[in-house]
Design a protein around this nucleic acid. Structure first.
Length: 356
DNA sequence: AAGTGAACCAACCGCACCTGG
DNA sequence: GCCAGGTGCGGTTGGTTCACT
């Protein structure tokens, strides 16, 4: 049995609202308040369905609606909130006074989403896109620190395939968790909160991610995450790790946990911390009766998530200095670089986020 | 000036959740 | 606990405007 329609649509008007209709709706709501949307149209003398009236009021006629172009600050808030909340437009709108979910959604789809794509950033995951079909240019991308760190071409290719394997084979939920725990994106992002808020939010994000991952993960992975949740000091150790390291930890040689940015692996503290992380993961696996050789693929951290220099090689990726790509206006250029900064989470959003 | 395609955005649609009987 | 109505939300559509040829 299907649901009954929200109202009898026979004879009801659809399409754009006329000024007279707007005025009737405004007059009625100012006098009686929004109330029951189903009965409102009849009482207000409108030949519209209640749903249409509600939408017109909430998206257009409400007195507190701010109209006009989105400011840089608003755009910044939208991107950052979207990275945390996803397509929860109403939740995002709740953090931006005067803006409606519909308006934000439209602005995202028509402006921000395209801009991020042009910059080679996946607007869904907020991580860099990698065009797997353009492998030759990846192999010849000499500016990549990943390749610079390898000694010979064969090793470079081997590492690259390993890298791609990490990106494509690991459970996406694990990647999310891994990036959450370890990337400097989130470190910088969290850095901008007061310490208490920071700890609270980071724990919340970690717990949410673990819950989400556990729900979607196969039984063995679920068991690992249950253990992670119950392991004393796990969150604290992750925070310590991200506080000292620029990039996500990597599992190398099946046994060693290592900072992804080898150049920074020189300080004693950093090495010590890397060792702590490794010890943590090793003890966790041992507790579960697992060992690294058998399960490292499941727990390896993704090296490409945010910390490595741009490895995006898609033909459509935004390349500011490339003459072969479509040129953008200076304004777009400016906004693009602005967005690039946003993706590093260097700009505080605490003005917009009370509690996430 | 006319034609065409892209961009924009208000509005619609269908689903899911909430709530009261 | 079940059901139906009310409401909110996210995805999509289609009309209008703009830019380009």
């Amino acid at each position: 049995m299907g649901r009954a329609p929200c109202c009898d649509k026979d004879g009801l008007k659809k399409g754009p609202w006329l000024p007279e209709e707007d005025q009737k709706l405004i007059d009625y709501i100012e006098k009686h308040g929004p109330g029951n949307w189903r009965t409102l149209p009849k009482k207000a003398g409108l030949e519209r369905c209640g749903k249409s009236c509600r939408l017109r009021w909430t998206n257009y006629l409400r007195p507190d609606i701010k109209r006009g172009r989105f400011s840089f600050e608003e755009e910044e808030a939208i991107i950052q909130l979207h990275s945390v909340l996803g397509n929860k437009w109403s939740a995002i709108a709740a953090k931006l006074p005067g803006r409606t979910d519909n308006e934000i959604k439209n602005y995202w789809n028509t402006h921000i989403r395209k801009r991020l794509l042009r910059m080679g950033i996946d607007p869904v995951t907020h991580t860099r896109c990698l065009d797997y079909l353009d492998l030759p240019s990846i192999f010849t991308h000499s500016s990549s620190s990943f390749l610079q760190n390898s000694s010979d071409h064969q090793q470079q290719q081997l590492n690259l395939l390993k890298l791609l394997g990490l990106q494509s084979l690991v459970n996406p939920n694990l990647l999310n968790l891994a990036s959450l725990l370890s990337t400097n994106q989130n470190h910088n992002f969290l850095q901008n909160f007061h310490q208490d808020d920071q700890l609270m939010m980071q724990n919340q994000l970690i717990n949410d991610s673990i819950i989400q991952s556990t729900m979607a993960a196969p039984p063995q992975e679920a068991a690992i995450f249950d253990e992670m949740k119950s392991t004393n000091g796990f969150n604290q150790q992750c925070q310590q790790y991200t506080a000292f390291n620029d990039g996500p930890p990597l599992m190398v040689n099946n046994h060693q946990w290592q900072n992804s940015n080898n150049n920074n692996m020189v300080g004693a503290g950093v090495n010590q911390d890397s060792g702590n992380y490794q010890a943590m993961m090793d003890s966790l696996l041992e507790t579960l009766g697992l060992n690294n050789e058998e399960h490292d693929d499941d727990l390896r951290m993704p090296p490409l998530l945010s910390t490595t220099p741009p490895l995006t090689t898609s033909n459509s990726a935004y390349q500011p200095n490339s003459s072969s790509t479509t040129t953008t206006s200076s304004e777009d250029h400016e906004i693009d670089s602005y967005c690039q900064n946003l993706m590093n989470f260097d700009i505080p959003i605490d003005l917009f986020v009370d509690n996430v």
